[in-house]
Structure formats: C-alpha cells, structure tokens
C-alpha cells in the first residue's frame, strides 16, 4: 500500500498541474465556482483552504500513518498554494475555455485491432484464475 500511495500522490500532482490550465480557475478538488450555469451537489469549499488530509487519503484509498500525514500535509499545502497564485491571474477579458488544447479532435476509425501480447497482460494480473481476474470481495469505505 505504501508504494501505491506514493504513486497516487505523484500522479495526483502531475495531473493537477497539467489539467488545471484548461479550466482556468477550476482545479478539480476545489470546485469553487463553476463557470457554467449548472449547479452541482459537490461540496463548495471556500477558497484555497488546505484539504483535510486524512479525509483526502481516505477518498484515495491510501492508508497514511499519523507521521505520514504530518509529512505530506505541507506538500499538499504547497500544491494548493500554487493554485492560489493562479487565482491572482486576471481573466476578466479571457473567454472561458473547455480545454487548454484547441486543436480539437484526434479521432480513431472504428476498426478492430487485437492486442497481440495478451499473455503479458494476463501475467501482470496479481490474481488470475482462468478465465477470470480475481478481485477483492468488496471495497467498503463508506
């Protein structure tokens, strides 16, 4: 779980950095105000407060020891602060963009192509019982 946790976090940082430019003032875990008129039930948080780290870890299915919480809290706080800087950008005269890239469609024809190295895929499955992938019984957190 430890290594997985780390992976999730790196992933987390990376994705945030990349995608946030597309949706201007709308980083995903701080749905602050929606540019569109729709009103979703996602909790609104006031601007740029660091998230409740144990809660965040729980949502990501990461077990964090109290000392790890202490270790990660400032790092997450740092990420949040980066977004704080973005908030300062004046967007008054900028059209809201759906995505950062405006090149648009990169589509594929609907032509089947079988992936050849299936053995390797199956071999990498942690628990396999022909022909099924065995999975944990249930993931109950809530």
């Amino acid at each position: 779980m430890g290594s997985r946790a780390l992976l999730m976090l790196t992933n987390f940082n990376f994705k945030t950095t990349v995608s946030s430019f597309g949706s201007a003032s709308n980083p995903f875990f701080l749905i602050k105000n929606n540019l569109r008129t729709r009103n979703f039930s996602t909790k609104t948080r006031s601007s740029l407060q660091p998230p409740d780290l144990p809660g965040l870890a729980e949502t990501a299915r990461i077990s964090l020891a109290p000392n790890e919480v202490e270790e990660f809290a400032p790092k997450i706080g740092q990420v949040i602060d980066w977004f704080g800087q973005l908030q300062a950008v004046d967007l008054d005269n900028v059209e809201p963009a759906i995505r950062a890239d405006t090149e648009g469609d990169n589509l594929r024809e609907d032509a089947p192509q079988t992936f050849e190295n299936k053995e390797a895929l199956i071999a990498s499955v942690p628990s396999y019982e022909e022909p099924y992938i065995k999975v944990p019984k249930v993931l109950n957190k809530e």
């Binding site: 995608s19 980083p27 875990f29 949502t59 890239d101 648009g104």
Partner: peptide
Amino acid sequence: RYFPEPDLPE
C-alpha cells in the same frame, strides 16, 4: 471528484 480528462482533447 470529477475533473476534465487530461488525456483526451475537446
């Protein structure tokens, strides 16, 4: 925790 899919274009 919806966010825009970064791997796909508009």
